[in-house]
Simulated scan of single mutants.
Amino acid sequence: MSSIHELATLTSKGQITLPKSIRQALGVDTGGKVAFELRGGEVVVTRAEFEHEDPAIGAFLGLLEADIRAGRHLQSLPDDLARAMLANAGHAVNLDEEIDGEVAL
């Protein structure tokens, strides 16, 4: 890969805009994720690698979380389940983790 040298200005909010040539070199676009790693006195920026997520499912889960946080759609749920859902909203889930206890489908 050829060397690219660009400058960016830090805003009062601590934000920068990645120059177009850097975005193109990393292969990121609007909504893309980048990772920052501090190595000594240098910051290394790389494209963040995430598992593919279906945008429709992500959007649906976002709407569902917003409804739960706003207290909507919880009237028919048992209070302990609604509290558990609210307490765990936004927490990472390991789908490979073993399930404790019995599960009825």
Rank of each mutant, 00 (worst) to 15 (best):
S3D: 11
I4H: 10
E6Y: 02
L7G: 09
T9L: 09
L10K: 00
Q15W: 10
Q15K: 11
Q15R: 12
S21Q: 14
Q24I: 03
Q24W: 02
G27K: 01
G27T: 07
V28D: 02
V28A: 05
D29K: 06
G31K: 03
G32L: 07
K33A: 15
K33P: 03
V34P: 03
R39H: 14
G40F: 04
G40C: 10
E42K: 15
V43A: 12
V43P: 04
V44W: 15
V45K: 09
V45I: 15
A48E: 04
F50T: 15
E53K: 13
A56E: 15
I57M: 15
I57S: 12
G58A: 15
G58P: 01
L61E: 07
L63F: 13
L63W: 09
E65C: 06
I68Q: 01
R69A: 14
R69N: 04
A70H: 02
G71R: 08
H73Q: 08
H73L: 12
L74V: 11
L74Q: 04
Q75S: 11
S76E: 10
L77A: 09
P78N: 11
P78S: 09
D80P: 01
L81S: 03
L81I: 12
L81G: 00
A82W: 05
M85W: 04
A87L: 11
N88D: 07
G90S: 04
V93Q: 04
N94W: 04
L95I: 11
D96A: 08
E97S: 12
E97Y: 11
E97F: 10
E98T: 11
E98Q: 10
D100F: 06
G101C: 05
V103L: 15
A104K: 13
L105H: 13
